[in-house]
Measured scan of single mutants.
Amino acid sequence: SPEEIKAKALDLLNKKLHRANKFGQDQADIDSLQRQINRVEKFGVDLNSKLAEELGLV
């Protein structure tokens, strides 16, 4: 269901964000992850996106 997909995506992105902060990645990478999280919260996951591929939806 779209809600489950959204939850999985947010979980994955939050893990990536945590790792980025923990290991001191570029601020641009961290900002990009934050924008992705905001986009998923607002609009859900686009099944044509790279994120959908990472989640194994495509």
Rank of each mutant, 00 (worst) to 15 (best):
Q34L: 15
D29C: 15
N48W: 08
F43D: 09
Q25H: 13
Q25R: 10
E54M: 10
K42L: 13
A28K: 11
K16R: 13
Q25S: 14
K42D: 06
N38K: 14
S49F: 02
L57I: 12
V45C: 03
E41T: 09
L57H: 04
L13S: 00
F23D: 14
A9E: 01
Q34A: 06
S32D: 14
L13T: 00
G56P: 02
K8S: 06
I30S: 03
D31Q: 09
E54H: 05
V58H: 10
E53N: 08
E4I: 11
E3R: 07
V45Y: 01
L17E: 01
A9Q: 02
V58R: 10
V40D: 01
L33W: 02
E54N: 04
D46R: 04
E53A: 12
A20P: 02
D26C: 13
F43N: 06
E41H: 08
K22H: 13
N14G: 07
K50H: 10
L12I: 13
G24V: 05
S49E: 05
N48E: 11
R35S: 11
D11L: 06
D31P: 03
L33I: 15
R39P: 01
E41K: 11
V45S: 01
E53M: 13
Q27R: 07
V45D: 02
P2Y: 13
K15A: 12
K22G: 07
G56E: 06
L51N: 01
E54Y: 07
N48P: 05
P2T: 11
S32N: 13
V40P: 00
V45A: 02
S49R: 01
L13G: 00
E4M: 10
D29R: 14
D29M: 15
I30A: 05
L12V: 09
F23V: 13
Q27E: 08
S1D: 12
H18M: 12
I30P: 01
K8D: 04
A52F: 09
L12Q: 06
L55Y: 02
K15I: 08
A52T: 02
G24E: 07
H18T: 12
P2C: 15
G56K: 06
K8A: 11
N21L: 15
S1N: 12
K50G: 09
E53I: 13
E3I: 07
L13Y: 00
S1A: 08
A20H: 04
A28V: 10
S1I: 08
K15D: 10
L12Y: 15
S49W: 04
S49Y: 02
Q36G: 02
D31I: 12
K16F: 04
I5E: 03
N21E: 14
I30N: 03
R39M: 15
L47H: 06
Q27K: 10
S1R: 10
Q36K: 07
E41I: 13
L51P: 01
D31K: 08
Q27W: 09
K42G: 05
D26W: 04
D46N: 07
S1M: 07
F43I: 06
V58Y: 06
R19F: 14
E4S: 11
V45F: 04
K16H: 05
Q34C: 09
E53H: 11
E4C: 14
P2L: 12
K42M: 12
K8G: 04
R35A: 14
E3Y: 05
I37A: 02
R19C: 15
L47T: 06
L57P: 02
E4A: 12
I30H: 03
A7E: 10
L10F: 00
L13I: 02
F43G: 05
L10Y: 00
Q25L: 13
L17T: 01
F23A: 13
K8M: 12
N48L: 08
R39K: 13
A20R: 02
K16Q: 11
L10A: 01
L47P: 12
Q25F: 14
L13F: 00
R19G: 06
E53G: 07
K42T: 09
Q34R: 13
K6C: 05
D31T: 08
Q25W: 15
E53L: 13
S32W: 14
A20T: 03
G44P: 02
I5F: 07
V45E: 02
I30Q: 04
K42W: 07
D11Y: 06
D11K: 05
E3V: 07
S49L: 02
Q25G: 14
A28L: 09
R39A: 14
E54Q: 07
P2E: 11
A9D: 01
R35P: 01
K15Q: 12
I5N: 08
F23I: 14
V58I: 12
D26L: 09
R35F: 05
D11F: 04
K42C: 12
E3F: 06
V45G: 02
E53K: 13
E41F: 03
S32I: 12
D26M: 07
D11R: 04
A28D: 11
K6P: 00
E54V: 06
A28W: 08
L47Q: 07
K15S: 10
F43C: 14
S1F: 09
D31Y: 01
G44Y: 01
L12T: 05
K22C: 15
V40E: 01
A20F: 08
K50F: 10
N14H: 15
K6Y: 04
L10T: 02
L10N: 01
L12W: 11
Q27F: 09
Q27M: 10
K50Q: 13
D46A: 06
V40H: 01
S1W: 11
D29F: 15
E41V: 08
S49T: 07
D29I: 15
F43P: 02
N21W: 05
K6H: 04
Q25P: 07
E41C: 07
R35T: 10
E3S: 10
N38M: 06
S32Y: 14
D11G: 04
V45M: 04
Q25C: 15
L17Y: 03
K15P: 00
H18V: 14
D26V: 08
L57R: 03
S49G: 07
E3C: 10
N38Q: 14
S1L: 09
V40C: 02
K16I: 07
S32G: 09
F23G: 11
K6T: 07
A52C: 04
A20L: 10
K50V: 10
R35K: 12
Q27N: 08
K22I: 13
R19P: 03
S49Q: 03
Q25Y: 15
N48H: 12
K42V: 09
L57M: 08
L47W: 09
I37N: 00
S49D: 07
K22W: 09
K8E: 06
P2Q: 12
G44F: 00
D31F: 00
G24S: 07
V58Q: 11
L13N: 00
N38T: 13
A28C: 11
D46P: 07
L10C: 02
D29N: 10
D29K: 14
L33R: 00
D46Q: 07
Q36V: 10
G24L: 06
I30W: 03
A20V: 05
D31V: 08
H18G: 10
K15L: 08
E54P: 00
L51A: 02
L57D: 03
D46V: 05
I5L: 13
L55I: 07
A52I: 05
N14Y: 15
K15T: 07
A52K: 02
K15H: 08
A28T: 11
D11Q: 08
D29P: 03
V45H: 01
I30C: 03
V45Q: 01
A20I: 07
Q34E: 11
L51S: 01
L57W: 07
I5H: 08
A52S: 04
G56M: 08
R35Y: 04
I37Q: 02
P2H: 12
E53T: 09
G44L: 01
F43K: 04
D31G: 05
Q27L: 10
V58A: 11
L12A: 07
D26P: 14
E3N: 08
L51C: 04
R39Q: 15
I37C: 01
Q27I: 09
K50A: 14
L10H: 01
G24I: 04
K6M: 07
D11C: 13
R35H: 10
R39H: 15
R19N: 15
A20S: 04
K50R: 08
K16P: 00
L17N: 00
L12K: 04
E54D: 07
F23Q: 12
F43E: 11
A52Y: 09
D31N: 09
P2F: 14
K15G: 08
L55P: 00
V58K: 12
I37S: 01
K16D: 03
K42N: 11
